[in-house]
């Protein structure tokens, strides 16, 4: 199936475009800062940046309502910012400080917020898929109309548990949206080197789950597809699959030299498909906003990100007694 085009621009308000611009920019600047702090040794271990994929999570969050849940993999900073978690708490978790969402005990890959219905942050590739279906099962059991977004990558899409979950999610009509963030590379292995399947959403059809491929670099297309999926789920019709065609500009993690693709390929995506530039063009091209308007937002975002970095550096390391807490509820 061909990637979807953006819907009629006239359907989008200036406010909504500005909101998308602001949210995507926050993720990008936050991630750039995280990369910088990693280079300074303030962030340790694994750190997977979301730069390039911002439109996916921002567009889908625009379709949610209170009580909807989300769960994702280790490339999770963008999802947390998009669902309203505080940049300071996320950054402080990256630096392993007590002000972090997990008191410094989870790190980049393991953050959660009950309050914002963000269920992680999972380091085992594909594990979040049945977990997400389980969150949906709980909502169905309780009889509400909330939905769960279970995000995973093209790499995770080859895990067996994804298909066990598809089978049960359709069998039990669970209100879960499977969001495949297809950035074309599972660490260093391209999709073509890992499967003969032409599409990933198409595999769901074998289980009876409808789905579609979406231009994941176009936040408006993402939102439109998300609305369709959410309506399907809320109506009790079971799961839905969205294959978001997207691209990560950075390596798989901070330690990835990215030799498996050319500089030209990356540059071409940045030049031609960048999600933030797309919204900027819509705002300025249609005369809705001026360069000055957007610069003001840029400054505002920069302040938020710098503040989060300062907080993350200033927040103390967890007390040594924290070693022994939270093992049991």
């Amino acid at each position: 199936m061909a990637a979807k085009k953006a819907p009629e621009k006239s359907n989008v308000s200036k406010e909504e475009l500005l909101k998308f611009y602001r949210e995507m920019l926050l993720i990008r600047r936050f991630e750039e800062k995280a990369g910088q702090l990693y280079g300074m040794g303030l962030i340790g271990g694994f750190c997977h940046l979301y730069i390039g994929q911002e439109a996916v999570v921002v567009g889908l969050e625009a379709t949610t309502k209170d009580g909807d849940k989300r769960i994702t993999s280790y490339r999770d900073h963008g999802h947390m910012l998009a669902c309203g978690m505080d940049a300071k708490g996320v950054m402080a978790e990256l630096t392993g400080r007590e002000g972090g969402y997990s008191k410094g005990k989870g790190g980049s890959m393991h953050m959660f917020s009950r309050e914002k219905h963000f269920y992680g942050g999972h380091g085992i590739v594909g594990a979040q898929v049945p977990l997400g279906a389980g969150l949906a099962l709980a909502d169905k059991y309780k009889g509400n109309d909330n939905v769960t977004f279970a995000y995973f990558g093209d790499g995770a899409a080859n895990q067996g548990q994804v298909y066990e979950t598809y089978n049960m999610a359709e069998l039990w009509a669970l209100p879960v949206i499977f969001v495949i963030e297809n950035n074309h590379y599972a660490m260093g292995t391209s999709q073509a080197r890992s499967t003969k399947s032409e599409t990933l959403f198409g595999r769901g059809l074998a289980y009876g789950i409808p789905g579609e491929q979406v231009d994941g670099m176009d936040v408006l297309a993402v939102k439109a597809a998300g609305e369709k999926a959410v309506a399907h789920c809320r109506a009790g019709k079971g799961p839905y699959i969205l294959e978001m065609m997207t691209y990560r500009y950075r390596g798989h993690s901070m330690s990835d030299p990215a030799k498996y693709r050319t500089r030209e390929e990356v540059q071409k995506m940045k030049d031609e498909k960048d999600a933030i530039e797309h919204v900027r063009d819509l705002l300025i091209g249609s005369g809705l906003s001026s360069e000055e308007d957007l610069k003001a937002i840029d400054r505002e975002i920069k302040d938020i990100v710098n503040e989060s970095a300062e907080f993350a550096k200033a927040s103390p390391e967890p007390a040594l007694s924290e070693l022994w807490t939270d093992i049991y509820a």
């Binding site: 849940k69 769960i71 269920y119 594990a127 898929v129 049945p130 977990l131 997400g132 279906a133 389980g134 969150l135 949906a136 099962l137 709980a138 909502d139 059991y141 309780k142 067996g160 548990q161 066990e164 979950t165 089978n167 049960m168």
Partner: peptide
């Protein structure tokens, strides 16, 4: 499908069951 239904059950526990 042990890994599938076990993961679903863990998610359901987080969801309040």
């Amino acid at each position: 499908t042990e890994i599938g239904f076990t993961g679903i059950a863990v998610g359901a526990a987080w969801g309040g069951l």
